[in-house]
Nucleic acid binder design. Structure first.
Lengths: 341, 341
DNA sequence: TTGTACGCGTTATCAC
DNA sequence: GTGATAACGCGTACAA
């Protein structure tokens, strides 16, 4: 019985074999010119490169990934893309990974551990060589998926005191405490805190503020505001209204991030509230605009570029199979005392 | 001679075959349970799904892509991630593509056609099923790569009057003209324009403004400012200084985008320049904060969510092999006349 | 330095 | 409804 006619399922695209045929060499030589040119003689290389250019060959990532067991991708999950903090962190990560041959698979979790889990599951099919996560509050299933993936993981933004996982970030509680200290030092006593989004980092900043306020004997629940809504300039306006309604004698507001503080600043201008004379305003994150508001905004800058760089560098160490010098890197923060306090 | 011992190159991860063995079925049944459950009997399906869960099986994207000639990915290239316009467009795209089973491979071109080309080349290795681009100003090589990829392409933000390619966006020149008309209608005559970044859309907006100003006999080169720098709030401050230096009698400024306008607004407050009494200020893009600035900013809103939705929808049509009703979709814009003019 | 044989994990195809 | 077999395009291992 004659063998069944092999049915071609070829994609019609230019393959390594096509390039090889064109250059009159074997496929593996083409592969080598791309992966480790040094192993191929200059003469062959030239012929092959010409063939690649003529045919417009683009290596097939799937085939390469399957054959080499390396995908050349790194999954990066951030809670938001509308926030300069994460965008700049992504940029810094890319600056480290791209030159070393890795591509980023970006996911936006929208501050939801459930969405994070779903995103991770989806991206895991790409067999990433490494994973970069924001925060430490993953779901149980996410932890299981991470463990099962076999890929090294680095957490960004927060630091894990236990050292159980690799992390690069800033101490959020310490930062919150520092701002509270700054306001007290400037003589403010009736200091409010506006917490929105209520993600773990927001809570930690608030905890730092509460602790210092309690220690100073100044903590009053009426000045401890919160809203689960996502942060925005408009929400800052709204929260200021709420603050003025429920604790009108407050002399300072510490907003859990800069967007909120910008809204507060705008609303103060609209109402003719003098900042910082009548009300001091502080933010968190040091967004680019915060250096230019009127008055210029006092805020806390976390080293987002540094975090991205260090996290990516740490991950490349782990992906190379090396044991990093430190598993936990606290990059600190900087209090930018400007005109609004 | 005995056959060479086959060297295992298995990745050690859970595969379709592992799940099949566990469930006591063939690999293809597992595959079908995942791809087209209807083809598998309920009994088998249950056993298989249990096995999948027990083993924590995650399908290998590379193998699937290789075998099926469909990658399930769509490349989306945007000029910036620091701009709410593109972030919101991305969100809208994802809302359409994700439920239909596609993943986004995001690239940030930083307004550079050369970076766009490099990014495209890198992502093309993933054999995307479709491609979403921002703008119409691609390099020759980019066009060649696109054509060679075989994937359908939709351009966003600008519209292609020739209909040569599929595009979804707003007429930038018309929008620029509309704002010029608005300012003239409000009685301003010494209207300046601040152009930064100088991407094609900025130039088109400026062209619209110039045309209307010339027609009104009000165009003066001294009020036509430009800077190649990337847009930022700080640059707005700087450009206002420049404007006041070279054309101090200007009675209105049209900024090519809202960041710039925010900077101008802040600097006006700092200098005590009354807006809009002494100087009217207008922006472009309607960033979320623009509704809350003091005074609230007059600007032009382009339907970024609609653009993302329609572009993604159009792309899905093309990816399905259908011929879309229209290849060019102009979603228009909306002039938000607020307090700053 | 260059080439041959084979396997990576999955789905298309065809047979039962 | 279920399964056996053969690709998909490339890199690893080994041979020459």
């Amino acid at each position: 019985m004659p063998p069944r006619k092999p049915h071609s399922r070829a994609s019609g695209r230019v393959t390594l074999a096509d390039v090889a045929a064109r250059a009159g060499v074997s496929a593996i030589s083409v592969s080598r010119t791309l992966q480790s040119p040094a192993q191929v003689s200059a003469a062959l290389r030239a012929r092959i490169q010409a063939a690649i250019a003529e045919l417009g060959y683009v290596p097939d990532h799937a085939a390469r990934s399957l054959a080499s067991a390396r995908s050349g991708t790194v999954v990066v999950l951030v809670p938001s893309l509308g926030n300069a903090v994460f965008v700049e962190t992504l940029t810094a990560i890319q600056a480290v990974l791209q030159p070393r041959g890795w591509q980023m698979l970006i996911g936006n979790t929208r501050y939801s551990p459930a969405e994070e889990e779903a995103l991770l599951l989806a991206w895991l099919g790409h067999r990433p060589d490494g994973i970069l996560l924001s925060g430490l509050d993953q779901t149980g299933r996410t932890r299981a998926l991470l463990a099962g993936s076999g890929a090294p993981v680095v957490h960004m933004m927060e630091i894990d005191a236990t050292g159980a996982c690799c992390s690069v970030g800033s101490g959020q509680e310490a930062a919150g405490a520092a701002m509270a200290g700054h306001l007290l030092a400037r003589g403010y006593r009736r200091i409010a805190f506006i917490a929105v989004q209520l993600d773990p980092r927001t809570r930690q900043r608030r905890e730092g503020w509460r602790q210092v306020m309690r220690d100073a004997g100044c903590y009053e629940p009426a000045r401890d505001l919160e809203s689960p809504q996502p942060s925005s300039v408009g929400l800052g306006v709204e929260m200021l209204e709420q603050l003025l309604a429920q604790a009108p004698d407050s002399d300072a507001v510490f907003c859990c991030n800069d967007d909120l503080a910008h809204g507060v600043l705008f609303e103060c201008q609209r109402r003719g509230i003098d900042v910082p004379g009548r009300l001091a305003v502080a933010g968190f994150n040091d967004l680019p605009a915060s250096a230019w508001t009127h008055p210029r905004l006092t805020t806390i800058a976390i080293p987002r570029t540094g975090i991205g760089q260090e996290a990516a560098r740490l991950l490349t160490e782990l992906m190379a199979g090396r044991t990093p010098a430190q598993r936990t890197i606290d990059l600190g923060f900087e209090l930018k005392a400007r005109d609004s306090t």
